[in-house]
Design a binder for these strands. Structure first.
Lengths: 135, 135
DNA sequence: TGTTGACTTAGAGCGCACTCACAGTTGGAG
DNA sequence: CTCCAACTGTGAGTGCGCTCTAAGTCAACA
C-alpha cells in the first residue's frame, strides 16, 4: 500500500536482476523468490545469469498488480502455469475473472470503510475540543 | 478481503465474548488477542468475564474497518491509547487523517490495477482461441 | 450438587510473503 | 591477470496477524 512511481518505463534491451529490480520496483531478492515459486521464468545467459527482456518485465508488472490486489502467490502460480502451458484462455482466464469480482467487492468495501473513517473524522471536527470522548 | 454481512446490528444488552464474535464477525480468539494487544478494553463481570456493550461493539467494528484497510495493529494501538487518554482529537485524529490519505491513494492504485486486469481479460477475449500466448 | 460447556490467561504454533546469509561463480574495469 | 562487485542456489530468519493449546475457573441446568 503506497509506492511512488506510477508507470513502468520498459527498456528494449536485456536487464540483469538488479536492473530489473530498479525498473519494476520489486527487489532482486523478491524477483528470485518469485522465480523459485514458479511465478516467473527468466531466460538465462550461457553461464546462468537472469536476463529480463520486455516480455519478462511486463510479466513482473502484471504479477505485482495481482499481488497488490491480494492474490496469493499460489494462485498466481496456478495462473502462470496455465499461461505457460498454453491454456491461459481455458484455465488462466477464469482465475482472472474470479479475481476481478473479488477485487470489485473489495473496492466497494474499502469505499464503505473510507466513508466510516470520514464520519469519525467529522465527528472529531464537530465535537467541542474539551468534550469527553467515545471509542 | 471478502465477508458476507454488511451492517452490524448492535443489541442493547451485554454480550459474552462468543456472542460478540457472532455479532461482529471477529472470532472470539481474535477479540481476546485485540484486547491483549491493547486495541480494546472490555468491561468485566465480578469474576472476570468480558461483557461487550454497544460502545465496545462499535469500537470493535471501527477497529475491524481500520484493519481491513491495512492499518497495522501497532498503529491502531497508538490510536486507541490516544482515545483512551482523552487526547483523541490531538493525537488520534492525525493518525486517522494520515490513514485516510493512504487509503485514498490505495483505492486509486487498486482501481488502476483493476483496469489493467480488465485489459488482460479483454485481450484474452479478443485473441483467437488457438493463438500462441504471451506473459 | 454434579456435570458440561463456555470462560480465563499465557504461551506456543502457523501461514504467508518476503528478506537475508552463505558459500561459491562470474563479468568487466584497470 | 587481478580483483571487486554482482551474480547464483538453498536454506534459514523475520514480522505480522492471527489461531490454537493447555490448564484452570466459572455459570447454569438437571
Amino acid at each position: 500500500m503506497g509506492e511512488e512511481e506510477e508507470v513502468l518505463n520498459i527498456p528494449s534491451d536485456l536487464l540483469s536482476v538488479s536492473a530489473a529490480a530498479q525498473v519494476t520496483g520489486i527487489s532482486a531478492h523478491t524477483l528470485r523468490y518469485y522465480e523459485r515459486a514458479g511465478l516467473l521464468q527468466t531466460p538465462r545467459t550461457a553461464t546462468g545469469q537472469r536476463r529480463y527482456g520486455p516480455a519478462e518485465l511486463l510479466a513482473v508488472e502484471f504479477i505485482s498488480r495481482l499481488r497488490a490486489t491480494g492474490m496469493p502467490i499460489r494462485v498466481i502460480k496456478t495462473y502462470a502455469d496455465a499461461v505457460r502451458a498454453g491454456s491461459g484462455r481455458e484455465h488462466g482466464l477464469p482465475l482472472l475473472l474470479a479475481h476481478r469480482e473479488q477485487l470489485i467487492r473489495d473496492l466497494a468495501q474499502r469505499q464503505a470503510h473510507l466513508e466510516a473513517i470520514n464520519s469519525k473524522i467529522t465527528a472529531y471536527r464537530d465535537c467541542a475540543p474539551t468534550t469527553k470522548e467515545r471509542s
